[in-house]
Amino acid sequence: MSADLSPLLSVKGISKYYGAHIGCADVSFDLYPGEVMGIVGESGSGKSTLLNCMAGHLAPDAGEVVFDTRADGPKDTVTMSEPERRMLGRTDWAFVHQHARDGLRMGVSAGGNVGERLMAVGERHYGDIRGKATDWLGRVEIDADRIDDRPTTFSGGMQQRLQIARNLVTGPRLVFMDEPTGGLDVSVQARLLDLLRGLVRDMGLSAIIVTHDLAVVRLLADRLMVMKSGRVVESGLTDQVLDDPQHAYSQLLVSSVLQV
């Protein structure tokens, strides 16, 4: 059992205010290697603010985001230097945006999109980069003969899979996902979820997934946090929170989903 491992990510008292308005307040949790955590809540509940604070896209007003770095062990990423944090963003961290066009370079071929992170960490052998890009396109079920096509010629689901390949090619240990299946057709969503699940298991990834889709977290997340008005109102095992919600808001959220 993995009970003796130390956390990969330790979030301590993260708060972010927009003037008098609360973005998120006093959020704390530990994420262990290989764990997938879902964050659910309605629009404006602060889940995206929290994700962006953790991923270094927003500076929190208070709190620490301690990441277990490969080189120096646990380090607070909020106070670490920007170059160091951006380096994490290219190596050990990945960020999957809801809209693929926010996470892709639309003017660059699929291969170039996947290869960028490799080149960013110093790979300088064209053949190797192309080989890895080809391999990753295969892993996200994109035909190898599309490698030189631009993402503008791809469907929404393909763009999202390309974004995932681009993010995972450097073997990150922690993936932040912001509504990864939002805006996709239901059939495309299922395929993407299946793919994500396989990748998470095969690569031993840890992930934090923000979504308002409870089906997504049931399939992908081990643990769940429910947010309302910037605060965490309930957290626990995913199936426990979904099947036996304790907080009034969680109960409302779960009961509001249409059964299929």
């Binding site: 920007e82 290219r90 003017g107 490799l118 960490v121 064209y126």
Partner: peptide
């Protein structure tokens, strides 16, 4: 490849030049 001046200045200051090779990669591809 990166139209935002704010971003390119940051890339210079942090020596993040992977993008330059993306351009060359695209050429070869």
């Amino acid at each position: 490849l990166e139209p935002r001046e704010s971003e390119t200045r940051k890339m210079h200051s942090l020596e993040e030049y992977g993008l330059m090779h993306v351009k060359l990669y695209e050429d070869i591809a």
